[in-house]
Structure formats: structure tokens, C-alpha cells
Write a protein that binds this DNA or RNA. Structure first.
Length: 508
DNA sequence: GTCATGACTTAGCAGCAGGCCT
DNA sequence: AGGCCTGCTGCTAAGTCATGAC
């Protein structure tokens, strides 16, 4: 891990050293007393060399390694569930290493220990129990048909259970995924009513009811997560219900808008959420009330928990929980944006671009961010150079056109007329290329910190995309959008349930 | 209501395979 | 054909939510 930023952090180094010392012999413990004095470069070089050697392997050797990996996958990567051979998601155990929590995690650097078969519970039919490694045993073997995991163990850092589970391509996962979207669609039929209800509740006599109504408004309008209380010993992150006074600033007026709420907090994975949103006057007034006489570290919604909120939601609609709002609003946004942004007569490239823009609108709504890719600056520079070159070409073409027009013979013989026309076409073509390159640069820049994958995989009902592709291809055969342009191989397998349904008139 | 636990979904990142350009 | 990017996939952390004991 020497190349990683983690190793420069005090918490990481202290945690690692403390755990490392536990593994030392008495002698070692007496000798090795300061991490700063330890030099790992030889060990590091050993691994760097090993990686280089692997990379330098001749073609045939690499092919052999690949085949061996495929064999392993065939042998251990599948299970039989209800008579169907299904792919397993994570069939390899997590190797030991140093814990890398996200954000300011107090446990970063702790030693994650190797998992032995003696730690692992196997869940399968009695006649299908896989043999443990030679000389070892399973911790336990069970045949619990009420759960979906195949094996489980407890990791030593946070003491949480980890599972071996099926791949998303499996029938089981697909059916669950479909159910999730069906619940979100049911919310669609009820959402106007629910919105009217929580708006009315902004004026409720009980503070508790008002808090719930404002929280629900945030969850609906801003697509916030539920945000339950977390234990200490984790990174300090929050969601809606766990927002604190210090995360909120109220501006009676900001950027020409009234009743502006500024939210600034670290959410899941310590991703920052920072937005200024204009809200209705009662919401603003309620927030003033909730913040009154509180310290910055106090809870904003002190009378509200995720559990009480979800109980309320369950009462409004069977199966309704806070996260359903994210799914609903994400999918609805995709459907709307696709309709707004695409025309049947657009080229295929434009259609695919529009799809990614609709996808981006959702990613922004859900605050799905990523670090700017490492290659970004380089590739952006290349693009800038391309734009500059195009600009020069356009200027040159313009001059040539001017010269042709200024020529005394212009408009005279047919030859000069043709030349003029050619120059005009050339200018037009180059201008078009320039515009496209500029648009590409803008899109690249706008996308550098937006992660599209998360919403695509977890929030967007695939049937919306499929119906859209179908519509685009049917309205315009020439510029149709084939599935591969939108979904990769793994994504097509994940969404097999939706592709099979194949409803071209699907409305979310 | 609170807390712990278990099960399952959602999340960003690293590394690498494979597509694209020269 | 070869090298360079880009986007895919695997990995595993970090959420959500239900349940049950008190």
C-alpha cells in the first residue's frame, strides 16, 4: 500500500502499527518500536517486480493463466438453485490486508485477518456441501431456505457478517430487482396524494409531525437517503434523519431566490452533498423552528428516526420506505428526460449522447460523484489541441471563402461559381466539426465528477431504457439504438428479466 | 422507543481487458 | 500490428430496513 495516500495518514499508521505489534514475537516487539523507522521498500519492490514479470510474460503464458482462471470460475463460480445453474457474485474469499474505510474512518489501517474455513458457515442442500480445504472444517453447515446467501462469515474490523451471494444475473436477484421497481411504480400512482399530505403536515400542531413532513419533503425533492443513526467508530456521515444543525444554513434571500436552504454534509461513502435550494415558505419557517436554541452538533430532526418515518410510510402504502422515493424519482426523471432530449430523426450518436445526458440528470439528482479520472487532464489537453487546430482550419476556410467572393470573376463563369460553393461547403463542414468537438469538451468537463453507473445499475428501471430504444429504432430504422449501445454485456445479463419482458409500450 | 443483529442493496475505486487510433 | 485510452468488471465498504428482545 506504500504508494497509497492512506499510508500518510496518522490514524492509518497508528492503527496499522498497533495491530502489527500484536502479531510480533516478543523479540520483534522490543526491536520494532516506531513505524517511522521501518523501511518496507524491499518488500514493496518484490511485489512491483512480481507484477512487472507477470506483465512481461509471453503471450502463450498469459493465455494459459487466463484459461486457468476460467477453469476456476467454472468449478467454483456457479451453484444450482431450484434446478438452475446460477452464477455466484463473489466466489473468492476476501484476502487479508489493511482495512481501507472511506473518508475519515477511525479504523483505517487495522489488519483485516485471513478468513479460514473454520470461520465460514455454508448454506446449501445437505447433499451438495462442498468439501472444506484439506485438513480443515467448516464452522457450520446449514440448509436455510429462507435466506439467499450461500456462505457467510464475520469480518474482524467492524464485526459484521459478510456473505457469498448470487450474481445479479440470477433469477433470484432479477426478480427482487423487478419487485423493487414495481413498488416504486406503485408510489407513482400515489405520490401526488402523499405530497399533498406532507405539505399539509408542515402546519401540523405537533413538532414531531412537522419534522417528519419536512424530512419527507427533503427525501422526495432532494433524493436524500433515510440516514439512520450510526455508531461511533465509523466515518462521520449523515443522511436526512441524522442531519445536524451544523449541516444547514438558512438564507432569507440568496442568488435572487427566496427561502434558500444551504445543505452541506458528508453522505454515504463520505461524498459531500452541497446544495442551495429554494424551498416553500412553511418549510423555511419550520427549519428556523427546528434549529432554534440548538447547538451546531444537535440533531435537526430530534423527534424523528428512520424507524418512525418508515412506519409512517408503511402506513401510507404497503412496501413504502424512504429509499423508494429515490428509486421513483430517479426512474421518473430518466423517462421524462429521454422524452425531452430525444427526437426520432436524430443520428444514432446524438441519441446515445442524449441517453447519457438523461442518465446524468439522474446521477446529479442522486449526488453520485466520482473523483476526476487520473487521465482527465491529459485527454482534455488533447481535445483542446484538436479544438485549436479546428479553429485555425475554420479561420483559414473563412479567408479562402472571402477571397473567392472578392474575386472579380465571382458569379461570372460556372467554374468560379462551383469553387465558391465548394468553399462554402468546406467552411460549413469544418464549423460543424468544431462545434461537435467543443460540445464534446463541455460534456467531458461536466461529466468528470459525475458517476453514471450507480444510477444506471440501481435506480433506473431498465424497462424505461428498453422501451426508449425500441421506440427510437422503430421510429427511425436508420438511426436506431441497439441494446449494446446502452447496456454492456454484464448489464444485459443483469437486466435479462427486463429484456425478456420486452414491452415496447412500457410506461414507468 | 431503543438497541443489536442479520440480510440484502447501493457505492466508489483500482486494475485491466479490449476497442480504437495511428 | 502495436500502443494507448476508456469503460467494464471485480472488489469490498457502507448504506437501508426488518425483526426481536428488553
Amino acid at each position: 500500500m506504500l504508494h497509497h495516500e492512506y499510508t500518510t495518514k496518522e490514524v492509518f499508521r497508528n492503527n496499522f502499527f498497533k495491530d502489527w505489534r500484536k502479531e510480533m514475537t516478543l523479540e520483534e516487539r522490543l526491536l520494532i518500536t516506531h513505524l517511522d523507522k521501518c523501511d518496507f521498500t524491499e518488500i514493496h519492490r518484490y511485489f512491483v517486480d512480481k507484477a512487472a514479470a507477470r506483465k512481461a510474460l509471453p503471450k502463450e503464458e498469459k493465455q494459459k493463466l487466463k484459461e486457468e482462471a476460467a477453469k476456476l470460475q467454472q468449478e467454483f463460480g456457479y451453484c444450482i438453485l431450484d434446478g438452475h445453474r446460477e452464477k455466484i457474485g463473489n466466489f473468492k474469499m476476501e484476502p487479508p490486508g489493511l482495512f481501507c474505510g472511506r473518508g475519515e474512518h477511525p479504523k483505517m489501517g487495522m489488519v483485516k485477518r485471513r478468513v479460514l474455513s473454520e470461520d465460514v458457515v455454508i448454506n446449501c442442500s445437505r447433499d451438495a456441501v462442498p468439501g472444506p480445504p484439506v485438513g480443515h472444517q467448516w464452522r457450520e453447515v446449514c440448509s436455510d431456505t429462507t435466506v439467499t446467501w450461500l456462505a457467510a462469515w464475520t469480518e474482524n474490523i467492524q464485526n459484521r457478517t459478510k456473505y457469498i451471494a448470487l450474481n445479479p444475473s440470477s433469477k433470484l436477484k432479477g426478480e427482487k430487482d423487478r419487485q423493487k421497481y414495481e413498488v416504486a411504480r406503485r408510489l407513482g400512482g400515489l405520490v401526488d396524494e402523499i405530497r399533498a399530505q406532507y405539505q399539509a403536515a408542515w402546519e401540523a400542531p405537533e413538532v414531531k409531525t412537522r419534522q417528519r413532513a419536512v424530512a419527507l419533503y427533503f427525501i422526495d425533492k432532494l433524493a436524500l437517503r433515510a440516514g439512520h443513526e450510526k455508531e461511533d467508530k465509523t466515518a462521520d456521515t449523515v443522511g436526512c434523519c441524522s442531519l445536524r444543525v451544523e449541516h444547514v444554513r438558512l438564507h432569507a434571500r440568496a442568488a435572487g431566490r427566496q427561502h434558500v436552504v444551504e445543505l452541506d454534509f458528508l453522505g454515504k461513502d463520505s461524498v459531500r452533498y452541497h446544495q442551495l435550494v429554494s424551498v416553500e415558505e412553511p418549510v423555511f419557517r419550520n427549519l428556523q423552528l427546528f434549529m432554534k436554541n440548538k447547538k451546531p452538533r444537535d440533531s435537526l430532526f430530534d423527534r424523528l428516526t428512520t424507524s418512525s418515518l418508515n412506519k409512517h410510510l408503511q402506513h401510507l402504502m404497503h412496501g413504502l420506505t424512504a429509499k423508494v422515493f429515490r428509486t421513483y424519482n430517479a426512474s421518473v426523471t430518466l423517462q421524462e428526460q429521454l422524452q425531452v432530449l430525444t427526437r426520432a430523426t436524430d443520428s444514432q450518436a446524438d441519441k446515445v449522447l442524449a441517453y447519457s445526458r438523461a442518465n446524468r440528470a439522474v446521477a446529479i439528482l442522486c449526488n453520485h460523484q466520482r473523483a476526476t479520472p487520473r487521465s482527465f487532464e491529459t485527454s482534455m489537453q488533447a481535445l483542446r489541441r484538436k479544438i485549436e487546430a479546428k479553429e485555425a482550419q475554420v479561420a483559414e476556410a473563412q479567408e479562402e471563402l472571402q477571397r473567392a467572393m472578392a474575386s472579380p470573376r465571382t458569379g461570372g463563369d460556372s467554374k468560379s461559381r462551383r469553387l465558391l460553393q465548394q468553399r462554402q461547403q468546406r467552411l460549413q463542414r469544418l464549423s460543424g466539426q468544431l462545434a461537435r468537438a467543443r460540445a464534446q469538451a463541455t460534456a467531458k468537463d461536466e461529466n468528470k465528477q459525475v458517476a453514471l453507473g450507480t444510477s444506471k445499475l440501481n435506480y433506473l428501471d431498465p424497462r424505461i431504457s428498453i422501451a426508449w430504444m425500441w421506440l427510437m429504432s422503430c421510429r427511425c430504422r436508420r438511426f436506431g439504438v441497439p441494446v449494446e449501445k446502452v447496456y454492456s454485456r454484464a448489464q444485459r445479463e443483469r437486466f435479462a428479466w427486463a429484456l425478456q419482458e420486452g414491452d415496447e409500450h412500457f410506461q414507468f
